[in-house]
């Protein structure tokens, strides 16, 4: 695994700094070895500094298959139960895959108009790991939930089964809305973006092939020009990034998405959203 981890780390430039911080913090005594296998304490400090994080398990939880069939495409849902969190409104959700080379897989910034903060996505999982979701509320408090996933090899797994297709369709987007939404009800929207989300790889000594990292790093979603959600992503999101979120349009309007990748390429698309019937 070391070789592939190194390949990923080498390319995950935006997280290099974080890893350096962790590496510096690494020296430990033999007695602490067992506990030191858990990267979370160091990650928490690196990402959230000394802020308190409360247990959010009474109103938030993570759903993922206990054993993933394909480590490169692990479906994950961050679910909230609004009935159990009166007075709390989610502002951002930070998704951390503890043992991935780029542990912070995504940060979701939610607008207040979002009716339900539950988010679905697909991630790469490099080895057996805990996954943490940390929700920051509008009052500044942090809450977290976690899940353990058995999967291995997703980060360094080849990003694409059919590279020629991926290039031909780069940046295409698709929005799925359930057709049977009733008026006034929140609807679950699925956004899909065609992008290899290459994790990058080292120069291969034999074949001389080199694929630089190239991934979606920002997604902005608006409804009738008003922000709905923005997402910071990286190579820990699967090929063809997938985001499921909720929407409660008062009236017919236009959903608009702008995505930017690490090469600076920008992809835009808009869809008319009919009023709920």
């Amino acid at each position: 695994m070391r070789l592939s981890r190194t390949a990923c780390i080498g390319q995950a430039l935006s997280f290099l700094l974080l890893l350096v911080i962790l590496a510096v913090a690494a020296p430990r005594t033999a007695a602490a070895d067992e506990a030191s296998d858990d990267p979370w304490p160091d990650l928490q400090t690196a990402i959230f500094a000394d802020r308190q994080i409360a247990d959010g398990s009474s109103f938030m939880h993570l759903e993922a298959p206990a054993r993933a069939a394909d480590a490169a495409v692990v479906p994950l849902e961050i679910k909230f139960d609004p009935a159990q969190m009166p007075g709390l409104t989610v502002k951002t959700i930070t998704l951390v895959i503890d043992k991935n080379p780029a542990p912070v897989a995504a940060v979701f910034h939610l607008a207040a108009v979002m009716p339900d903060p539950s988010i679905g996505t697909r991630i790469r999982v490099n080895e057996y790991t805990n996954i943490h979701a940390v929700a920051e509320m509008t009052d500044g408090k942090l809450y977290m939930a976690k899940v353990f996933v058995k999967a291995a090899g997703g980060c360094s797994a080849p990003a694409v089964k059919t590279p020629a297709e991926a290039v031909a369709h780069l940046g295409e987007m698709k929005l799925k809305l359930p057709p049977d939404a009733t008026a006034g009800q929140a609807r679950r929207a699925q956004l899909m973006i065609r992008h290899p989300n290459f994790s990058g790889m080292q120069m291969d000594q034999v074949t001389r092939y080199y694929i630089p990292a190239k991934f979606i790093e920002a997604i902005d979603i608006t409804y009738d020009g008003k922000p709905l959600m923005s997402v910071e992503g990286n190579i820990s999101l699967s090929e063809n990034p997938f985001i499921e979120f909720s929407l409660k349009p008062d009236q017919a309007g236009e959903m608009s998405v702008t995505a930017r990748d690490s090469d600076g390429a920008v992809f835009k698309k808009a869809w008319p959203v009919p009023a709920s019937s």
């Binding site: 695994m1 592939s4 080849p158 694409v160 590279p163 790889m201 291969d204 074949t207």
Partner: peptide
Amino acid sequence: ANLPRSLAARAGDYLAS
């Protein structure tokens, strides 16, 4: 013709596993 590129992308994982 596609083999060298596709294998290069996977070689590290294949050797390790």
